[in-house]
Simulated assay, not measured.
Amino acid sequence: MKQPYEKYTKTDHLMWKRLFERQMEILPRLASEAYLTGIEQVGFVADHIPNLTAETNPRLRALTGWEVYVVPGLIPHQEFYQHLANRQFPASTWLRSPEQLDYLEEPDMFHDTFGHVPLLCQQAFCDFMADLSRVALRFIEQSHLIERLSRLYWYTVEFGLIHENGAQKIYGGGILSSPGESAYSVRPDVPKRPFDVEVILNTPYQIDRFQEHYFVIDSYEQLYASVPEIEKLLENIEEKESVY
């Protein structure tokens, strides 16, 4: 698929502008430095929807070797992780309507692109996603293990926080594209837990409301370095279950 850029209407571009400006009013004080730098590096601006082919992908390839790969919407686990292992981030190209401003049943291109693409400029984070996906493909036929690994993806790539300069900052795309959860996630009264692979693999998540707690990494290098532990824990689960 290709991004049907010429088919975006004036209403679409105005919706992007509205969403972009709403988030950028609050994210400079809440988001990870790597994400904010990434916004500039990929050239995202308020006045038009990013052109993935002409603007975004050439910049990403030069920075980290990644690119955005257009998909129609949610795709199967195997296809999703295969793209990530190949350093292709799957993203939809449809944009929410004014009636869907604050709630969507599935991610649109603002979530996929604004929420996730700027962090694709951060090498350690990119390497984490690629290596995690290779682990996922190893266990792809075992749905119960993929469910465990999905928790890890959820609590990091989608809803992760990071310690930066003495504060907790946002790097998860699911938070970064949501004004309500951006403010909520960093509140001091909201439970935070240190990044712990084993705990995360055993912690179910929720998709229809704000998270009850968040996991906080110390660095993107810590995230990347955790992949061998993730793989080993999945192997241990597989081995225990085979015994019974």
Rank of each mutant, 00 (worst) to 15 (best):
His13Val: 04
Leu14Gln: 15
Met15Thr: 03
Lys17Asp: 10
Lys17Gly: 06
Arg18Lys: 14
Phe20Tyr: 08
Phe20Leu: 05
Glu21Tyr: 07
Gln23Pro: 04
Met24Trp: 11
Met24Cys: 10
Glu25Ile: 10
Ile26Leu: 10
Leu27Ser: 02
Arg29Trp: 10
Leu30Glu: 02
Ala31Trp: 00
Ala31Phe: 03
Ala31Arg: 01
Ser32Arg: 03
Thr37Asp: 15
Thr37Met: 12
Ile39Tyr: 01
Gln41Glu: 12
Val42Trp: 01
Gly43Lys: 08
Phe44Asn: 01
Phe44Lys: 00
Val45His: 15
Asp47Thr: 11
His48Val: 11
Ile49Ala: 02
Ile49Leu: 09
Leu52Cys: 06
Leu52Ser: 02
Thr53Tyr: 13
Ala54Arg: 15
Ala54Phe: 11
Thr56His: 07
Pro58His: 06
Leu60Val: 10
Leu60Arg: 06
Ala62Gln: 12
Leu63Asn: 09
Leu63Ser: 12
Trp66Met: 09
Trp66His: 05
Glu67Asp: 11
Glu67Pro: 04
Val68Ile: 05
Val68Leu: 08
Tyr69Cys: 14
Tyr69Thr: 12
Val70Gln: 05
Val71Phe: 11
Pro72Glu: 09
Gly73Asp: 08
Gly73Pro: 01
Gly73Met: 06
Ile75Pro: 00
Pro76Asn: 11
His77Val: 15
Gln78Asn: 13
Glu79Phe: 13
Tyr81Gly: 03
Gln82Asn: 12
His83Ile: 06
His83Arg: 14
Leu84Glu: 00
Asn86Ala: 15
Arg87Ser: 06
Arg87Thr: 07
Gln88Lys: 14
Pro90Asp: 03
Ala91Gly: 07
Ala91Asp: 05
Ser92Gly: 14
Trp94Val: 10
Trp94Gly: 05
Trp94Glu: 13
Leu95Arg: 00
Leu95Gln: 03
Arg96Gln: 04
Arg96Pro: 00
Ser97Glu: 15
Ser97Ala: 13
Pro98Thr: 02
Gln100Ile: 08
Asp102Glu: 10
